[in-house]
Design a protein around this nucleic acid. Structure first.
Lengths: 232, 232
DNA sequence: GCAAAAGTGTTGTGTATACACCCATGG
DNA sequence: CCATGGGTGTATACACAACACTTTTGC
């Protein structure tokens, strides 16, 4: 803040280009969607390697906004949920990059159906990406799995109204594990985040399912559950 | 990655200095210590406003290393635990900064006793700092409180060996709430993170306390506890 | 022997899990 | 009437919270 730069190059020296004094930086977003029972990530395919949607913030632009731009440029939509993940600095012989990574979540129902579908890749069968992108994606999956347990991220993967089975399938897909139907329903209902729309959906030769919607009101977002009671 | 810069200034135009095209990068660390029953933060006092220990990453330097430098320059020690918090972009008329914030934790016993003690400030009676530093500190406190519940951060605030009472006091200070002695002891012992040193400390006219040490082996660090069983 | 902190168990209550059957509909 | 998925309740285990007395030492 008040520290004068004491390590300036001598008067006639110009900074060496091969040793950059200022890093390249960019924002990369891991954008997820659910497609049937697959968890998919959006990747731009350019050349032989695919890459995460990336953007460089404009001067003064907020990081969140820049992350949103990256998403829009790749899949042409407003994502439903966005969260900063981690910032890391990567250097080799002659490049120096600072990467700010984001996790995003979107719902296929809100996507323009005309958009290119080839950007979406099942997380378990990803194309070749850089080692860095690979790390970021893995971290995003871990974070998504953890956060689905104590936040409402899952709702942003689903359309405005949905059946309890659809919600459960979303959880099962992300956790990659089956969940007990009765316990799951008890949990989400007693969590008081759903309201019934009263409507039903009939889609086959069986009993129609009630449609629910997410009660946005008290979205706890980054709520953490410490092992002590919340109030004294 | 493969995007050519398309918005360059015209041939004879030099970039305006007042509208920076590239941000300053600045790392700020919220470093905590426990002093008796107070939770303290390290701040540099320069002029009328105090400020968080900050540093600018050197070319190619990792962000963690730069954060450590900031700590060392302020309190002259290696902190015990360091964790990235959040990255944010701040712009006004003619500056553009990207701030990468860190949370650090240290133990007074490992501090050089000769070092300036005036950098330490009780978190509940902080001097005037910038609004940004204020935000970062508040966020760090929230994160520290949450993480103490499911990680081993607390051990890094204590010397190598300590009594159960000291450990409990550390928790109570950070959570700002009394905890039940028997429940606390049961919890930390069954968590299997302590080993008894067999030694006792006598420090008054009362029964001496057993000294414990932290079993570093399985430090779960960023372990999150989802409400589902860990293995299928 | 007394002051001061160390140490120790039990009980109730709530929450998570495991588990099996009836219901409504379409064909 | 049958196939298909929608919907419901209970018994058990575990984890957390509340709570009070005995032990060891210094003076």
């Amino acid at each position: 803040m008040n520290a004068a730069r004491t390590t300036m190059p001598g008067p006639e020296l110009r900074p060496a280009v091969a040793q950059p004094q200022t890093p390249h930086f960019d924002i990369r977003t891991v954008l997820f969607r659910l497609n049937d029972t697959a968890l998919e990530v959006a990747l731009r395919s350019a050349g032989r390697e695919a890459s995460l949607p990336a953007s460089r913030p404009e001067p003064g632009e907020s990081l969140d906004t820049a992350a949103r731009r990256a998403v829009q440029a790749t899949v042409g939509l407003q994502e439903q949920y966005l969260e900063q993940l981690y910032t890391l600095s990567i250097a080799d012989r002659d490049t120096w990059s600072i990467i700010i990574s984001y996790l995003g979540v979107s719902c296929p129902a809100t996507l323009p159906a005309t958009a290119d579908q080839s950007v979406w890749h099942n997380v378990s069968t990803l194309p070749v990406v850089t080692e860095l992108d690979q790390m970021v994606i893995q971290y995003a999956v871990i974070r998504l799995r953890a956060k689905i347990g104590y936040t409402t991220i899952a709702f942003h993967l689903l359309p405005a109204s949905f059946t309890l089975r659809e919600l459960q399938q979303a959880y099962e897909t992300i956790l990659n594990r089956p969940l007990d139907k009765r316990n799951f329903r008890r949990r989400v209902i007693s969590a008081d985040m759903l309201s019934s729309t009263g409507m039903k959906r009939r889609d086959g030769s069986h009993r129609p399912a009630l449609l629910y919607q997410f009660r946005a009101a008290h979205d706890p977002e980054s709520y953490l559950t410490p092992p002590w009671p919340i109030e004294s």
